[in-house]
Nucleic acid binder design. Structure first.
Lengths: 175, 175
DNA sequence: AGGGGCATGTAAATGGTTACATGATTAT
DNA sequence: ATAATCATGTAACCATTTACATGCCCCT
Protein backbone atom coordinates (compact mmCIF):
# COMPACT_ATOMS: atom_id res chain seq x y z
CA UNK A 1 0.00 0.00 0.00
CA UNK A 2 2.98 2.31 0.24
CA UNK A 3 3.61 3.12 -3.37
CA UNK A 4 0.01 4.22 -3.63
CA UNK A 5 0.63 6.73 -0.87
CA UNK A 6 3.94 7.89 -2.24
CA UNK A 7 2.14 8.82 -5.45
CA UNK A 8 -0.62 10.50 -3.51
CA UNK A 9 1.97 12.46 -1.53
CA UNK A 10 3.76 13.66 -4.64
CA UNK A 11 0.50 14.72 -6.24
CA UNK A 12 -0.43 16.57 -3.06
CA UNK A 13 2.60 18.81 -3.67
CA UNK A 14 1.39 19.64 -7.19
CA UNK A 15 -0.31 18.01 -10.19
CA UNK A 16 1.86 15.92 -12.50
CA UNK A 17 1.82 13.24 -15.19
CA UNK A 18 2.98 9.66 -14.70
CA UNK A 19 6.14 10.50 -16.55
CA UNK A 20 6.86 13.49 -14.32
CA UNK A 21 6.18 11.48 -11.20
CA UNK A 22 8.44 8.69 -12.33
CA UNK A 23 11.39 11.04 -12.62
CA UNK A 24 10.77 12.77 -9.31
CA UNK A 25 10.21 9.42 -7.69
CA UNK A 26 13.31 7.69 -8.99
CA UNK A 27 15.67 10.32 -7.73
CA UNK A 28 14.27 10.52 -4.24
CA UNK A 29 11.82 8.03 -2.77
CA UNK A 30 12.99 5.12 -4.90
CA UNK A 31 15.96 4.88 -2.55
CA UNK A 32 13.69 3.79 0.27
CA UNK A 33 10.85 2.29 -1.75
CA UNK A 34 11.80 1.11 -5.24
CA UNK A 35 9.11 0.93 -7.90
CA UNK A 36 9.05 0.38 -11.61
CA UNK A 37 7.44 2.39 -14.36
CA UNK A 38 4.68 -0.19 -14.90
CA UNK A 39 3.84 -0.26 -11.23
CA UNK A 40 3.55 3.50 -11.14
CA UNK A 41 1.20 3.70 -14.10
CA UNK A 42 -0.80 0.86 -12.61
CA UNK A 43 -1.22 2.76 -9.36
CA UNK A 44 -2.27 5.91 -11.17
CA UNK A 45 -5.02 3.96 -12.88
CA UNK A 46 -6.22 2.42 -9.63
CA UNK A 47 -6.05 5.70 -7.72
CA UNK A 48 -8.09 7.43 -10.41
CA UNK A 49 -10.65 4.63 -10.42
CA UNK A 50 -10.93 4.88 -6.64
CA UNK A 51 -11.48 8.64 -6.93
CA UNK A 52 -8.40 9.57 -4.91
CA UNK A 53 -6.89 11.42 -7.86
CA UNK A 54 -8.35 12.67 -11.13
CA UNK A 55 -7.12 13.60 -14.59
CA UNK A 56 -6.83 17.37 -14.43
CA UNK A 57 -5.47 17.98 -17.92
CA UNK A 58 -4.63 16.15 -21.15
CA UNK A 59 -1.69 17.40 -23.20
CA UNK A 60 0.46 16.42 -26.18
CA UNK A 61 1.40 12.79 -26.80
CA UNK A 62 -1.50 11.62 -24.68
CA UNK A 63 0.03 13.20 -21.58
CA UNK A 64 -2.39 12.97 -18.68
CA UNK A 65 -1.90 15.28 -15.77
CA UNK A 66 -3.30 14.03 -12.48
CA UNK A 67 -4.36 16.07 -9.48
CA UNK A 68 -5.23 14.86 -5.98
CA UNK A 69 -8.89 15.03 -4.91
CA UNK A 70 -10.31 15.78 -1.48
CA UNK A 71 -10.84 12.06 -0.90
CA UNK A 72 -7.19 11.55 -1.84
CA UNK A 73 -6.05 14.18 0.62
CA UNK A 74 -8.06 12.53 3.36
CA UNK A 75 -6.55 9.14 2.58
CA UNK A 76 -3.05 10.60 2.49
CA UNK A 77 -3.59 12.22 5.84
CA UNK A 78 -4.81 8.97 7.32
CA UNK A 79 -1.72 7.17 6.08
CA UNK A 80 0.72 9.88 7.16
CA UNK A 81 -0.37 9.44 10.74
CA UNK A 82 -0.49 5.62 10.77
CA UNK A 83 3.07 4.29 10.92
CA UNK A 84 1.82 1.48 13.17
CA UNK A 85 0.52 -0.50 10.21
CA UNK A 86 3.55 -0.27 8.00
CA UNK A 87 4.82 -3.48 6.43
CA UNK A 88 7.47 -5.18 8.57
CA UNK A 89 11.22 -4.88 8.23
CA UNK A 90 12.82 -7.48 5.94
CA UNK A 91 16.47 -8.15 5.20
CA UNK A 92 17.77 -11.08 3.21
CA UNK A 93 21.30 -10.09 4.23
CA UNK A 94 20.48 -10.61 7.89
CA UNK A 95 18.50 -13.75 7.17
CA UNK A 96 21.65 -15.22 5.72
CA UNK A 97 23.58 -14.35 8.87
CA UNK A 98 21.48 -16.90 10.77
CA UNK A 99 22.73 -19.60 8.42
CA UNK A 100 26.40 -18.70 8.36
CA UNK A 101 27.16 -21.54 10.78
CA UNK A 102 26.59 -23.96 7.91
CA UNK A 103 29.44 -22.47 5.90
CA UNK A 104 33.16 -22.77 6.52
CA UNK A 105 34.72 -20.04 8.65
CA UNK A 106 36.46 -18.68 5.59
CA UNK A 107 33.21 -18.48 3.64
CA UNK A 108 31.37 -16.86 6.53
CA UNK A 109 34.15 -14.32 6.88
CA UNK A 110 34.05 -13.60 3.18
CA UNK A 111 30.32 -13.06 3.30
CA UNK A 112 30.66 -10.55 6.12
CA UNK A 113 33.38 -8.75 4.22
CA UNK A 114 31.09 -8.52 1.23
CA UNK A 115 28.37 -7.00 3.39
CA UNK A 116 30.88 -4.45 4.64
CA UNK A 117 31.87 -3.54 1.11
CA UNK A 118 28.28 -3.18 0.02
CA UNK A 119 27.64 -0.87 2.93
CA UNK A 120 30.74 1.20 2.14
CA UNK A 121 29.71 1.51 -1.51
CA UNK A 122 26.25 2.62 -0.47
CA UNK A 123 27.73 5.16 1.89
CA UNK A 124 29.83 6.58 -0.92
CA UNK A 125 26.80 6.77 -3.16
CA UNK A 126 24.84 8.68 -0.53
CA UNK A 127 27.75 11.08 -0.01
CA UNK A 128 27.82 11.69 -3.70
CA UNK A 129 24.12 12.48 -3.79
CA UNK A 130 24.52 14.82 -0.83
CA UNK A 131 27.42 16.67 -2.44
CA UNK A 132 26.27 16.83 -6.05
CA UNK A 133 22.65 17.83 -5.58
CA UNK A 134 22.00 21.46 -4.80
CA UNK A 135 19.70 21.67 -1.89
CA UNK A 136 17.29 24.49 -1.24
CA UNK A 137 16.24 25.40 2.27
CA UNK A 138 12.57 24.56 1.87
CA UNK A 139 10.80 21.86 3.84
CA UNK A 140 10.85 19.27 1.08
CA UNK A 141 14.64 19.39 0.86
CA UNK A 142 15.03 19.49 4.62
CA UNK A 143 13.17 16.19 4.89
CA UNK A 144 14.85 14.65 1.86
CA UNK A 145 18.18 15.45 3.53
CA UNK A 146 16.94 13.90 6.74
CA UNK A 147 16.19 10.67 4.87
CA UNK A 148 19.62 10.86 3.23
CA UNK A 149 21.22 11.36 6.62
CA UNK A 150 19.49 8.19 7.75
CA UNK A 151 21.08 6.36 4.84
CA UNK A 152 24.51 7.73 5.70
CA UNK A 153 24.23 6.73 9.33
CA UNK A 154 22.82 3.34 8.52
CA UNK A 155 25.40 2.38 5.94
CA UNK A 156 28.14 3.44 8.33
CA UNK A 157 26.62 1.46 11.18
CA UNK A 158 26.15 -1.56 8.98
CA UNK A 159 29.75 -1.55 7.84
CA UNK A 160 31.02 -1.24 11.40
CA UNK A 161 28.70 -3.98 12.56
CA UNK A 162 30.04 -6.34 9.89
CA UNK A 163 33.62 -5.53 10.93
CA UNK A 164 32.68 -6.24 14.53
CA UNK A 165 31.25 -9.65 13.69
CA UNK A 166 34.41 -10.50 11.74
CA UNK A 167 36.45 -9.54 14.80
CA UNK A 168 34.30 -11.74 16.96
CA UNK A 169 34.75 -14.62 14.54
CA UNK A 170 38.51 -14.21 14.53
CA UNK A 171 38.67 -14.07 18.30
CA UNK A 172 36.52 -17.19 18.53
CA UNK A 173 38.79 -19.04 16.23
CA UNK A 174 41.82 -18.50 18.44
CA UNK A 175 40.36 -20.08 21.55
CA UNK B 1 12.85 -16.19 -2.90
CA UNK B 2 14.20 -15.70 0.60
CA UNK B 3 11.76 -17.69 2.68
CA UNK B 4 12.45 -20.64 0.43
CA UNK B 5 16.11 -20.41 1.34
CA UNK B 6 15.48 -19.84 5.01
CA UNK B 7 13.59 -23.14 5.06
CA UNK B 8 16.33 -24.84 3.11
CA UNK B 9 18.91 -23.49 5.56
CA UNK B 10 17.02 -24.74 8.58
CA UNK B 11 16.58 -28.17 7.02
CA UNK B 12 20.29 -28.26 6.23
CA UNK B 13 20.93 -28.14 10.00
CA UNK B 14 18.69 -31.16 10.55
CA UNK B 15 15.43 -32.69 9.30
CA UNK B 16 12.18 -31.29 10.69
CA UNK B 17 8.44 -31.02 10.14
CA UNK B 18 6.62 -27.88 9.06
CA UNK B 19 5.42 -27.46 12.59
CA UNK B 20 8.95 -27.71 14.02
CA UNK B 21 10.28 -25.30 11.45
CA UNK B 22 7.56 -22.80 12.19
CA UNK B 23 8.55 -22.62 15.83
CA UNK B 24 12.26 -22.39 15.17
CA UNK B 25 11.61 -19.81 12.51
CA UNK B 26 9.31 -17.55 14.50
CA UNK B 27 11.75 -17.12 17.34
CA UNK B 28 14.76 -16.31 15.23
CA UNK B 29 14.61 -15.47 11.53
CA UNK B 30 11.08 -14.08 11.65
CA UNK B 31 12.62 -10.95 13.17
CA UNK B 32 14.38 -10.19 9.91
CA UNK B 33 12.08 -12.01 7.50
CA UNK B 34 8.51 -12.48 8.75
CA UNK B 35 6.45 -15.33 7.34
CA UNK B 36 3.14 -16.92 8.18
CA UNK B 37 2.27 -20.52 8.79
CA UNK B 38 0.48 -20.87 5.44
CA UNK B 39 3.44 -19.46 3.60
CA UNK B 40 5.77 -21.91 5.25
CA UNK B 41 3.67 -24.95 4.40
CA UNK B 42 3.32 -23.64 0.87
CA UNK B 43 7.08 -23.39 0.49
CA UNK B 44 7.58 -26.90 1.85
CA UNK B 45 5.24 -28.22 -0.82
CA UNK B 46 7.00 -26.31 -3.59
CA UNK B 47 10.47 -27.27 -2.38
CA UNK B 48 9.49 -30.93 -2.28
CA UNK B 49 7.99 -30.73 -5.74
CA UNK B 50 11.19 -29.13 -7.01
CA UNK B 51 13.23 -31.93 -5.46
CA UNK B 52 15.19 -29.64 -3.14
CA UNK B 53 13.83 -31.38 -0.06
CA UNK B 54 12.04 -34.69 0.43
CA UNK B 55 9.73 -36.30 2.97
CA UNK B 56 12.09 -38.38 5.10
CA UNK B 57 9.55 -39.71 7.58
CA UNK B 58 5.84 -39.72 8.33
CA UNK B 59 4.73 -39.81 11.97
CA UNK B 60 1.62 -39.45 14.10
CA UNK B 61 -1.12 -36.97 13.16
CA UNK B 62 0.10 -36.87 9.59
CA UNK B 63 3.39 -35.32 10.68
CA UNK B 64 5.77 -35.15 7.73
CA UNK B 65 9.44 -34.81 8.38
CA UNK B 66 11.43 -33.22 5.62
CA UNK B 67 15.12 -33.57 4.84
CA UNK B 68 17.26 -31.56 2.44
CA UNK B 69 18.47 -33.29 -0.74
CA UNK B 70 21.76 -32.84 -2.57
CA UNK B 71 20.05 -30.58 -5.09
CA UNK B 72 18.74 -28.57 -2.14
CA UNK B 73 22.20 -28.25 -0.65
CA UNK B 74 23.53 -27.02 -3.97
CA UNK B 75 20.78 -24.43 -4.26
CA UNK B 76 21.35 -23.28 -0.67
CA UNK B 77 25.03 -22.89 -1.34
CA UNK B 78 24.37 -20.86 -4.45
CA UNK B 79 22.09 -18.53 -2.50
CA UNK B 80 24.41 -18.19 0.49
CA UNK B 81 27.09 -16.73 -1.73
CA UNK B 82 24.82 -14.44 -3.79
CA UNK B 83 23.93 -11.41 -1.69
CA UNK B 84 24.11 -9.28 -4.82
CA UNK B 85 20.65 -10.35 -5.94
CA UNK B 86 18.84 -9.81 -2.70
CA UNK B 87 15.58 -7.86 -2.84
CA UNK B 88 16.09 -4.13 -2.30
CA UNK B 89 15.73 -2.26 0.94
CA UNK B 90 12.24 -0.87 1.63
CA UNK B 91 11.02 1.33 4.45
CA UNK B 92 7.57 2.90 4.62
CA UNK B 93 8.75 4.92 7.63
CA UNK B 94 11.42 6.62 5.56
CA UNK B 95 9.11 7.02 2.60
CA UNK B 96 6.85 9.06 4.83
CA UNK B 97 9.76 11.30 5.82
CA UNK B 98 9.89 12.60 2.24
CA UNK B 99 6.31 13.80 2.61
CA UNK B 100 6.57 15.41 6.03
CA UNK B 101 6.75 18.84 4.42
CA UNK B 102 3.05 18.54 3.62
CA UNK B 103 2.13 18.29 7.30
CA UNK B 104 2.21 21.02 9.93
CA UNK B 105 5.43 21.35 11.90
CA UNK B 106 3.69 19.97 14.96
CA UNK B 107 2.46 16.92 13.06
CA UNK B 108 5.87 16.30 11.52
CA UNK B 109 7.47 16.57 14.94
CA UNK B 110 4.94 14.17 16.37
CA UNK B 111 5.62 11.66 13.63
CA UNK B 112 9.35 11.77 14.31
CA UNK B 113 8.72 11.31 18.00
CA UNK B 114 6.63 8.26 17.21
CA UNK B 115 9.45 6.81 15.15
CA UNK B 116 11.80 7.38 18.07
CA UNK B 117 9.46 5.61 20.45
CA UNK B 118 9.04 2.66 18.10
CA UNK B 119 12.79 2.34 17.86
CA UNK B 120 13.18 2.53 21.63
CA UNK B 121 10.53 -0.15 22.14
CA UNK B 122 12.26 -2.37 19.60
CA UNK B 123 15.56 -1.84 21.35
CA UNK B 124 14.00 -2.90 24.64
CA UNK B 125 12.54 -6.00 23.02
CA UNK B 126 15.91 -6.98 21.60
CA UNK B 127 17.57 -6.46 25.00
CA UNK B 128 14.97 -8.68 26.53
CA UNK B 129 15.63 -11.43 24.00
CA UNK B 130 19.35 -11.11 24.59
CA UNK B 131 18.97 -11.34 28.34
CA UNK B 132 16.26 -13.98 28.64
CA UNK B 133 17.47 -16.53 26.13
CA UNK B 134 20.31 -18.75 27.24
CA UNK B 135 22.92 -18.78 24.57
CA UNK B 136 25.28 -21.64 23.88
CA UNK B 137 28.69 -21.02 22.39
CA UNK B 138 28.12 -22.88 19.16
CA UNK B 139 28.22 -21.28 15.75
CA UNK B 140 24.45 -21.06 15.32
CA UNK B 141 24.09 -18.98 18.47
CA UNK B 142 27.14 -16.88 17.67
CA UNK B 143 25.52 -15.82 14.42
CA UNK B 144 22.06 -15.41 15.91
CA UNK B 145 23.64 -13.07 18.46
CA UNK B 146 25.38 -11.20 15.65
CA UNK B 147 22.00 -10.62 14.01
CA UNK B 148 20.57 -9.53 17.35
CA UNK B 149 23.47 -7.14 17.83
CA UNK B 150 22.59 -5.64 14.47
CA UNK B 151 19.07 -5.06 15.73
CA UNK B 152 20.34 -3.41 18.89
CA UNK B 153 22.67 -1.10 17.01
CA UNK B 154 20.10 -0.26 14.40
CA UNK B 155 17.28 0.55 16.79
CA UNK B 156 19.64 2.77 18.76
CA UNK B 157 20.84 4.55 15.63
CA UNK B 158 17.31 4.99 14.41
CA UNK B 159 16.16 6.54 17.65
CA UNK B 160 19.10 8.95 17.70
CA UNK B 161 18.55 9.84 14.08
CA UNK B 162 14.92 10.72 14.79
CA UNK B 163 15.99 12.89 17.72
CA UNK B 164 18.51 14.63 15.47
CA UNK B 165 15.89 15.44 12.86
CA UNK B 166 13.61 16.85 15.56
CA UNK B 167 16.48 19.05 16.73
CA UNK B 168 17.04 20.24 13.19
CA UNK B 169 13.36 21.03 12.84
CA UNK B 170 13.34 23.02 16.05
CA UNK B 171 16.42 24.98 15.08
CA UNK B 172 14.89 25.73 11.67
CA UNK B 173 11.79 27.06 13.29
CA UNK B 174 13.70 29.67 15.29
CA UNK B 175 15.36 31.37 12.34
C1' DA C 1 14.84 12.21 -42.19
C1' DG C 2 16.15 10.26 -38.04
C1' DG C 3 17.31 9.98 -33.18
C1' DG C 4 16.33 10.91 -28.54
C1' DG C 5 13.30 11.85 -25.20
C1' DC C 6 8.33 12.06 -23.99
C1' DA C 7 4.52 9.32 -22.81
C1' DT C 8 1.55 5.44 -21.86
C1' DG C 9 0.26 1.10 -21.16
C1' DT C 10 -0.56 -4.71 -20.86
C1' DA C 11 0.41 -9.52 -19.32
C1' DA C 12 2.30 -13.33 -16.87
C1' DA C 13 4.53 -15.00 -12.97
C1' DT C 14 5.92 -14.87 -8.29
C1' DG C 15 5.68 -13.79 -3.46
C1' DG C 16 3.23 -12.28 0.60
C1' DT C 17 -1.16 -11.50 3.55
C1' DT C 18 -5.42 -12.80 5.55
C1' DA C 19 -8.89 -15.72 6.54
C1' DC C 20 -10.69 -20.00 6.70
C1' DA C 21 -10.78 -24.97 7.66
C1' DT C 22 -9.99 -29.49 9.76
C1' DG C 23 -8.62 -33.20 12.56
C1' DA C 24 -5.57 -36.26 15.73
C1' DT C 25 -3.14 -36.96 20.17
C1' DT C 26 -1.83 -36.13 24.81
C1' DA C 27 -2.15 -34.61 29.46
C1' DT C 28 -5.21 -33.46 33.23
C1' DA D 1 -14.34 -35.52 28.86
C1' DT D 2 -12.13 -31.67 27.35
C1' DA D 3 -8.67 -28.39 26.56
C1' DA D 4 -4.21 -27.58 24.84
C1' DT D 5 -1.10 -28.61 21.61
C1' DC D 6 0.27 -30.96 17.54
C1' DA D 7 -0.22 -30.86 12.70
C1' DT D 8 -1.50 -29.76 7.96
C1' DG D 9 -3.52 -27.51 4.48
C1' DT D 10 -6.64 -24.27 0.81
C1' DA D 11 -8.34 -20.02 -1.39
C1' DA D 12 -8.74 -15.27 -2.52
C1' DC D 13 -6.52 -11.15 -2.85
C1' DC D 14 -2.91 -7.75 -3.32
C1' DA D 15 1.88 -6.11 -4.36
C1' DT D 16 6.02 -6.67 -6.86
C1' DT D 17 8.94 -8.06 -10.82
C1' DT D 18 10.00 -8.68 -15.50
C1' DA D 19 9.22 -8.45 -20.08
C1' DC D 20 6.93 -6.77 -23.73
C1' DA D 21 4.68 -3.17 -26.66
C1' DT D 22 3.52 1.16 -28.94
C1' DG D 23 3.62 5.70 -30.73
C1' DC D 24 4.14 10.88 -30.82
C1' DC D 25 6.81 15.14 -30.84
C1' DC D 26 10.80 18.06 -31.18
C1' DC D 27 15.35 19.20 -32.47
C1' DT D 28 19.09 19.06 -35.61
Amino acid sequence: MSLRHAVLGLLAQHPASGYDLLKRFQESMANVWPATQSQLYGELGKLAEAGLIKVSDVGARGRKEYAITDAGRAELDRWMTSPQDDPPFRSAQLLRVFLLGGLTRAQAREYLETLGSFADALHARYEQIRDSHDWSDDDADFFALAALEHGLQYSRMHSEWAAGVIDGLDRRRKR
